[in-house]
Design a protein around this nucleic acid. Structure first.
Lengths: 343, 343
DNA sequence: AAAACTATCCAAAGCGCCTTGGATTTTTAT
DNA sequence: ATAAAAATCCAAGGCGCTTTGGATAGTTTT
């Protein structure tokens, strides 16, 4: 069922039917209702490609998800983020075009998308500290919002980020308040900006409390369970070992917990662990009683906000770049406790 | 840069330029080269919407990912699957349109996609034992391939699945061969067909070895770490407790391992655990030395095969439904060992 | 009652591409 | 040299929609 058929069936012109369905005022209320009824009954839906061609809007948003270079990993954050964004798109009649990109292809992918007029804008995932994609997108004139921030931009751009620096500073401070001074940071890949900011937050707190920052207590890599385990294991073997860990994800903390158990120690007593929790719903952090003390922020909510911001920018291209910094909540669970006395 | 501009610049008709770029024979090799050069240089890419309108093909595949009803969870499998599928689409000039759907909206979403001509086909994720989507898709005439199978179809349909039943039978048999007879199955939601088949495989092996199936040793829910922990914990408290666990995912096994540790027992010695591992790359199962004995199958590979199959069906709508059953590999890790003697 | 609006509808021209059905030129066969 | 065949190109129509610029009928104003 297309517009022509529908209009013939109604004995009206395509113009009138189109206008009736799109809410233009040049059509009487009675015929509008008649048209809407017939459209609903005939299950008429405008052909999206024809509509796009006529209006010049693709009615689709591109998500380009990078494969982490090291192990071809899709960041688990992304599914949850997209679930949030998707909801907003649906409400506004947009679709979501997904691409998984290896870093070396990225530029071609963005250029291709834009030249084909396949999307009206894109979400930039997993920004690095130095992020050439922003200049690229600006050059090709494709609206975008970054989920996260970059460290190297001199001009304003659209972004939404959780306050990673503050969250990690706060988490570190909690441990310090509990008497810990030998704190290890098990962080994500620090060429990614979120991990870099977390490190800065950690260092902020240490410095402000006059504590030494021990480089051997800091590790940075892809956030796998095994990484957490191996790193914690080797740190716990040291003569001078940390009394607390800050972990950049739930998964990596599971590995830390395993190492603690293996070493015959008890988490929350002998050793404290605090994590950043992205509220990935299949890791529920123990349900009612949180296993891990955590700074929490909802990735899904970030997805919704990011999508909304992008649609706003698309609707009004003259708009000044927007940004939004989301605070995370510190929730105390079973994994932290006062620092044990040194002997 | 559009076709008209490009053809004017070349002093050729749009027809000739279009044919030169699309590989038609009615154009001399010399002009073809001339056209291709100019197109590449001008960064010309046909407008996807116009192309779709003219050809009647959306050049996009729909992935409708259901939110699990219980906790609004996006299945972590899906990101990895999509990474595989995406690769195939890219090779063939297709895009991937993603929708996150709540179960109650699902029918409307599929109907909408089809009526809008937004996709040429869809991948059906997370099929249940009883799956009304197949009849729906048949009714609206949208090509599809199911990732997994259903239990209630009398007619042939396109699917790709891992042999869950055989994998779990094999895993169970391994435990039985090691002397275990009290085996617990920590399974996914058994209204989903993959979990149901795993249960059948488990029961197959038990029955063939003349072992009793103890319903209190079987649990089924969303595969979270907490679920694994709580279930294992309560089973280990029993007077007559299992000596081995079969877990439907890596995540749930992490919970089981935690419960084992908490009970002061040792995994691989006091208690055996065997898992099904979907090779989600951010869970590397311990790298070189697999932590868990596992039946492994690559979700990414399944994504690639499923996508290929769908494109084939779209190219040739008369094709008889295809199917493919992928076998998984059993890898022995540190988590299994001979059953300890009962006392 | 004529003039000036309003309300309601429509014909037709695009959007950018592909494709049919020639038209023109070149090559091959007779 | 001429007819037939092949090679090469083009004009124009159509995909299904939106939108511009009228046209027509009904109301209100003077």
């Amino acid at each position: 069922m297309n517009l022509k058929q529908l209009s013939e069936q109604l004995g009206l012109s395509q113009t009138t039917v189109s206008r009736a369905l799109n809410g233009y005022p040049e059509v009487s209320e009675s015929t509008r209702i008649r048209v809407q009824l017939a459209a609903a009954q005939g299950n008429y839906r405008p052909n999206s490609r024809a509509m796009s061609l006529a209006t010049g809007r693709a009615m689709s948003i591109g998500h380009v998800v990078p494969l982490a270079h090291q192990h071809d990993v899709v960041n688990p954050i992304f599914a949850e983020f997209v679930a949030g964004a998707s909801q907003i798109y649906k409400q506004n009649g947009y679709e979501l075009t997904l691409t998984i990109a290896e870093t070396r292809n990225e530029e071609a992918i963005y250029r291709n998308m834009a030249a084909k007029c396949a999307v009206d804008g894109v979400i930039v995932h997993s920004p690095k500290r130095v992020e050439p994609r922003l200049a690229l997108l600006k050059e090709i004139g494709l609206p975008y919002v970054v989920h996260g921030r970059v460290s190297d931009s001199k001009t304003a751009y659209n972004w939404i980020d959780t306050n990673n620096r503050r969250a990690f500073k706060q988490a570190t401070q909690l441990l310090i308040d509990l008497g810990h001074s030998d704190i290890a940071l098990i962080n994500g890949d620090e060429s990614l900006n979120f991990a870099w900011l977390r490190r800065l937050g950690f260092e902020d707190a240490m410095r402000e409390n006059g504590l030494a920052i021990n480089p051997t207590f800091m590790a940075s890599a892809e956030l796998t369970e095994t990484f957490g385990y191996l790193t914690a294991e080797s740190l716990l073997k040291k003569a001078h070992r940390p009394s607390a860990f800050i972990a950049s994800s739930y998964v990596v903390a599971l590995g830390i917990r395993r190492a603690i158990g293996r070493a015959g120690l008890q988490m929350g007593k002998d050793l404290s662990v605090i994590i950043h929790d992205d509220e990935l719903s299949y890791f529920d952090n123990g349900g009612a009683v949180p296993q891990f003390t955590a700074t929490r922020s909802s990735v899904r909510e970030a997805g919704m906000l990011t999508a909304s911001m992008l649609l706003k920018q698309i609707d009004d291209p003259g708009l000044f770049p927007q940004s939004s910094l989301l605070e995370s909540r510190l929730t105390v669970g079973l994994s932290t406790g006062p620092a044990p006395a040194r002997n």
